[in-house]
């Protein structure tokens, strides 16, 4: 039987495929029946936060920063409660990262402020002496891509039934609703509203002026995203 296989490339290939597909079949496929259930208090991203998440991805922040707190005392002391599977229910793609050249950012919204990020992105070593993080100065001039963020929101709402415009249970027993605009213009308007809440805590007058004029720079979007990481 084996000798027969060795001379027949087609059946041989089938054999190889079974051997390598086997692990995936048993390990991965069954889990997709149990789609990730969000834990109480986990909400989908708003338009501006999602645009900020795109800025995070565009600059491969995940190359140096993880978003996964492991259940060790040293990690919970440093970064907060260890990560739960349900907290990632709306993360497409996941951003756990594989290297901590900089600290974990899973709950950075709990202990860093808008003001801190504003200074830090401009000159990391000026805020944290000895930091080896590069300056991200272009985020202060490039505009955030609200259109694409909105397109992604519509996509995940329609395809994956992400609960926009629906009540979501919060930890204190109340409910909260993440609004998704019906039109692209509406999405821009709500993103701008959110952006103004961020710039209220910022010092850079040029950024404030840009947002007043209806343009949202990348820095505002990424700060909105960072503040949402809790």
């Amino acid at each position: 039987m084996f000798h027969w296989l060795e001379k027949r490339p087609f059946f041989f290939a089938v054999g190889v495929f079974i051997a390598i597909a086997f692990a995936g079949l048993v390990e991965i496929v069954p889990n997709f029946y149990k789609a990730s259930q969000p834990v109480v208090g986990t909400t989908p991203y708003s338009t501006l936060e999602l645009a900020g998440r795109h800025v995070y991805i565009k600059n491969s922040c995940n190359a140096c920063h993880s978003q996964l707190i492991r259940p060790f005392k040293a990690e919970t002391d440093r970064y907060g409660h260890y990560s739960l599977s349900g907290e990632y229910a709306y993360d497409r793609p996941f951003l756990w990262g594989s290297k901590r050249t900089g600290p974990d950012l899973m709950r950075v919204g709990n202990y860093r402020t808008t003001d801190w990020h504003e200074n830090h992105m401009k000159d990391p070593a000026g805020v944290v002496p000895g930091s080896i993080m590069p300056k991200y100065t272009w985020m202060y001039t490039n505009l955030a891509d609200i259109d694409t963020a909105y397109a992604e929101q519509i996509t995940i709402k329609n395809v994956f039934a992400v609960p926009y415009n629906k009540p979501i249970p919060m930890k204190d027993g109340s409910t909260s609703v993440v609004k998704l605009a019906d039109t692209l213009d509406g999405a821009h308007a709500s993103a701008l509203e959110e952006a103004k809440l961020v710039t209220a805590d910022m010092k850079d007058q040029a950024i404030k002026d840009m947002v007043e004029a209806g343009n949202i720079p990348e820095i505002v979007a990424i700060i909105a995203y960072m503040n949402s990481l809790k």
Partner: peptide, 29 residues
Amino acid sequence: TYFASGGIGAWYHSVSMYAGTNDALVQWW
């Protein structure tokens, strides 16, 4: 996302079929 949203945003952008932990599992597999 461009096609799924009826032509909004960047044409090359896409969103993963898997979310969170499942995405991580497939990615490291």
